[in-house]
């Protein structure tokens, strides 16, 4: 962890026209990103990088040590964790979180906003836009692009719909359906991860969400649910790019445990 050399001691943040500077922590596993963002923010009088963290643990420590307005957090740092965002919100309720993601994904984006993140931005965001984003979020606003607004509203509608008619079928994303399809063909998490082009941990996260949505507890119940509700029939009649290859040629049986 680097408590930045230009970090002002606690209580001595730069003020510009009487406005306190925005205190930012950069949490990123890659030094090149931290260095780059720090240089970008260094040119702004109203933004001060108070600390840098390369792991989640370091971030917790930094938040404890430095009063913070905004955390710019690399999405990869919280990949595979379930409670990292709520934990960050709990530990530093005044710090507003911006998560940088490599690619936008409906499920993850909705989940991030649901858990308390104030902004989700691409890793490739331009410096000017990142600065604007930090200012807006420090000011109490939420930073959300049009696509994410649609996803969040859709999730809100689906939630409202399921509350008013509990028997309605839960909405599953295309990726969730692709993973379910793989599961019912007996594929292991590792194989699905390889096919979808992600990690095994991400597949496990998706599965937990799918189980919660459908109210099933394991692969057997998931397969039976698919058989009963025929949710894959409709999905597979509308082929998606996310479902790439046919089942393995060896067709071997696989013991199926979550």
């Amino acid at each position: 962890m680097d408590f930045s050399s230009n970090a002002a001691p606690e209580g001595m943040e730069t003020e510009l026209d009487g406005t306190p500077a925005i205190r930012v922590i950069l949490a990123d596993s890659q030094a090149i990103y931290r260095v780059g963002m720090k240089k970008v923010f260094a040119l702004e009088d109203d933004i001060r990088v108070v600390a840098q963290a390369e792991t989640l643990t370091h971030l917790y420590t930094a938040l404890q040590r430095f009063p913070t307005d905004v955390v710019v957090l690399e999405g990869q740092l919280i990949a595979g964790t379930v409670n990292a965002i709520p934990e960050l919100v709990r530990r530093a309720p005044d710090a507003k979180l911006i998560v940088q993601v490599v690619e936008s994904d409906e499920t993850n984006t909705v989940e991030l906003y649901r858990r308390g993140v104030r902004g989700v931005v691409p890793r490739s965001i331009s410096p000017d836009l990142l600065i604007k984003c930090v200012r807006k979020i420090a000011d109490g606003e939420t930073w959300i692009d049009n696509q994410s607004i649609s996803w969040v509203i859709e999730a809100y509608r689906a939630q409202a719909s399921s509350l008013t008619s509990p028997r309605s079928q839960p909405k599953l994303s295309k990726k969730e359906l692709a993973i379910i399809s793989c599961i019912t063909r007996g594929m292991r998490n590792k194989e699905i991860a390889y096919q979808i082009g992600t990690t095994e941990q991400v597949i496990k996260n998706y599965l937990r969400k799918v189980y919660d949505k459908l109210g099933v507890s394991d692969r057997l119940e998931l397969a039976l649910y698919c058989l009963h509700h025929q949710i894959l029939k409709k999905y597979n009649s509308e082929p998606e790019d996310v479902l790439l290859a046919a089942p393995e040629a060896n067709g071997g049986a696989r013991t199926a445990k979550v």
């Binding site: 019912t184 025929q230 894959l232 409709k234 089942p247």
Partner: peptide
Amino acid sequence: TIDMPASVMGSASDVSIHC
């Protein structure tokens, strides 16, 4: 064994659960 027809599961071939 519970057979799950390809037509219902949307798969290329039938799938089954052996218990």
